[in-house]
Amino acid sequence: MTTAYPTPTEPKEHTAEHEKHNLTGFIIFLCSESVIFLAFFSGYALLKTSALDWLPAGVDGLEWQMPLINSVVLVSSSGTIYLAERAKARGSIWGFRGFWLLTMALGSYFLYGQAVEWSGLEFGFTSGTFGGTFYLLTGFHGLHVATGVGLMTLMLIKSFIPGNYDGGEQGVEATSLFWHFVDVIWIILFLLIYVWQRS
């Protein structure tokens, strides 16, 4: 008598398939996350173009030199994270760790620069829609940078667990994608806030 499921299908690489799910899921999440930035950006543009007095009294624009240095730091960290992935693909685990650590350092410097900029500003979160949107956008982006540095720390620790290196691989790819995402968001943010000053 024939039985229910007699044809044994070839044993599948379950773990490998599941890893792919992780990356797919993460990309879907990033697409969704970009909408929240899109919402904030369009809100910013709408409030700015419709405002009568955009700048609060006593404020005449934002200093752009230091944020520009910060931007260069963040954009180049996208390059170093790429080099880290290349080193890993070549099989050089220490090359990977080196560039990975360098990326983390650049990310942390960016956060430090952001904190220095914030502490030197003469307006606050409640200084009209100008202050509100400035701190909302930079703060929300900064939260993402901090998350990225946190994820990188996790991946770095994972690379030291013997035998776990393969497991951390998809995590490395996802973290790197997240980091490029944070970088692109910053470029748009820089253009919107620092370059587009006169409405």
């Binding site: 409030l47 829609t129 509100g132």
Partner: peptide, 11 residues
């Protein structure tokens, strides 16, 4: 904050 409050420039 005044994102939605017209008295602070919001909408």
């Amino acid at each position: 904050t005044t994102f939605y409050d017209p008295s602070g420039g919001g909408d």
